[in-house]
């Protein structure tokens, strides 16, 4: 309880300080409007619905990238786990993957796939899928051999073993992968929209920035942060409940 209070203070105190600095014109509205102004702006943006299409577009693309990466990531991870040679070959790629600036490939995607939604979804997918594969591999590695033996004793086939024994056992790891995939899908899609695209929240923020329209830009930034943090926190809560039941603390 006390921790919740401290957390609240840790959010509210800096905000209050910012509010005072902005009201005193110590920070000009051209740099940063007062937090209360941003909040009012966010309310106005939501009420007017000017950006509903952009919000919907971004969320759809994030959702697509996320679902694709989870499905492809788990299947690929499960397949690679069995193919030892392929895994040995891909392991160095996985370990350096996130050191590679994926956004640099974005222009190529635009040339190949055109200016539609595909390049954004692909960037989100490419960022997300590897964390899903790596988490799946880690999860399958964590399955104790005795459970594999148990599946054999119970005469389960290979597919049934993966479906009802190994994947459920690996679920906590898969969940970590899912959480990372959500975050990466957001980062990829919004980043791609920001760099070069005509739609979505990322584009709208860039557009507002180019026009020095702080009354739109800051509320939209806040909106993105709120969506990303809310999704992340709900997943955390869900994960915590699942783990508590399994006693993984």
């Amino acid at each position: 309880m006390r921790i919740a209070l401290y957390r609240l203070l840790a959010v509210l105190l800096p905000l209050a300080l910012l509010e005072i600095l902005c009201r005193d014109r110590f920070i000009t509205p051209l740099t940063l409007p007062a937090p209360s102004q941003i909040l009012l702006g966010l309310w106005a943006v939501i009420e007017k619905g000017t950006f509903n299409a952009a919000i919907l577009k971004t969320l759809t693309n994030v959702g697509l990238a996320f679902v694709l990466s989870v499905v492809v990531g788990i299947t690929t991870g499960a397949a690679i786990h069995r193919a030892r040679l392929l895994r040995a070959l891909l392991e160095p790629l996985f370990s350096t993957y996130y050191a590679i600036p994926i956004y640099a490939f974005y222009p190529l995607f635009i040339v190949v796939f055109g200016l539609g939604d595909a390049p954004q979804v692909l960037i989100g997918f490419m960022l997300a899928v590897v964390s899903m594969i790596v988490s799946t591999l880690a999860g399958l590695d964590s399955v104790p051999p005795v459970l594999g033996k148990t599946a054999l004793v119970l005469q389960l086939g290979p597919v049934e073993t993966v479906r009802s024994v190994t994947l459920p056992y690996a679920a906590p790891y898969l969940f970590t992968g899912v959480k990372l995939a959500v975050a990466y899908a957001f980062i990829g899609v919004i980043g791609a929209e920001f760099i070069m695209s005509g739609t979505g929240l990322g584009y709208e923020i860039r557009f507002a920035y180019d026009n020095l329209d702080n009354n739109v830009m800051y509320p939209l930034i806040l909106l993105i942060l709120l969506i990303a943090i809310t999704v992340n926190m709900s997943l955390d809560r869900w994960e915590w409940r699942l783990r508590a039941r399994r006693g993984h603390g």
Binding site: V146, K149, V153, L154, Q155, Y169, R246
Partner: peptide
């Protein structure tokens, strides 16, 4: 090369499925 019918094995390591309750663990097979 498959475990014959009528053979049951109990291992030293904990082979319970942590995501299933006791009843579901027992009736799994």
């Amino acid at each position: 090369n498959t475990v014959p019918d009528g053979v049951g094995v109990v291992f030293q390591e904990n082979a319970c499925f942590p995501w299933l309750n006791v009843a579901d663990n027992i009736t799994f097979g």
